[in-house]
Write a protein that binds this DNA or RNA. Sequence first.
DNA 1: TTGCAATATGTCATATTTGACATATACTCT
DNA 2: AGAGTATATGTCAAATATGACATATTGCAA
Lengths: 105, 105
Amino acid sequence: MRSNKQKKLEAKGWKIGSASDFLELSPEEELYIELKLSLCKSLKKLRTKKHLSQEDVAKLIKSSQSRVAKMEAGDASVSIDLVIKSLLSVGASKSDLVKAVSSAA
Amino acid sequence: MRSNKQKKLEAKGWKIGSASDFLELSPEEELYIELKLSLCKSLKKLRTKKHLSQEDVAKLIKSSQSRVAKMEAGDASVSIDLVIKSLLSVGASKSDLVKAVSSAA
DNA sequence: TTGCAATATGTCATATTTGACATATACTCT
DNA sequence: AGAGTATATGTCAAATATGACATATTGCAA
């Protein structure tokens, strides 16, 4: 099982250089990150389930493979908007989104 | 009961000037808009329930009253990211988010 | 009515997100 | 081993979202 600290570290780029430290996140910052990571994980799951490459998804959303990789990695440089748009483009249903939100830690 | 067309029109600024017309949205574009509008609506509900002014919320999220107004209006210039951050700052729980996503048309 | 607080709408310079690209790394195959 | 495919990571100019501000509009109490 993955530790809490590791999950925070996966949110690459977050809070680096800011006053507050990684492990001092407010509850709402925590939930925001967990939610985003959950959506990112769902994207990867749905994509592989559909046997699509990152390049395939990139074409669907008119973006690039590198951006899809960053989405799946939960990179801080990608917006939740883009992740949600990608999920929908890959065929996620409303209930898929509900599941993703529900399963945020 | 509100018509479908009206809900689209509430998504101010959307698709204006683009090739496709308001009423020709793909299913995923539809769901994306409905989802966003649902989150916006939830924000307004939660804010009023907590007896907060838009100015109060603006201070919580370090933004401005006008941006909060735009969020609640479902303005196309605001990101889902900001709406979610606002919801969490106002005290939304995970189940509040789940409900908002679930109740997207 | 007037006055005041809350909300709506428009604009704009700045900040953040974006797609694109290069390149690195991983994972099959033969 | 090498070749081919998929994924990861870094960078950057262009596109988009942002907070701040001005101002308009609403609603409501005196």
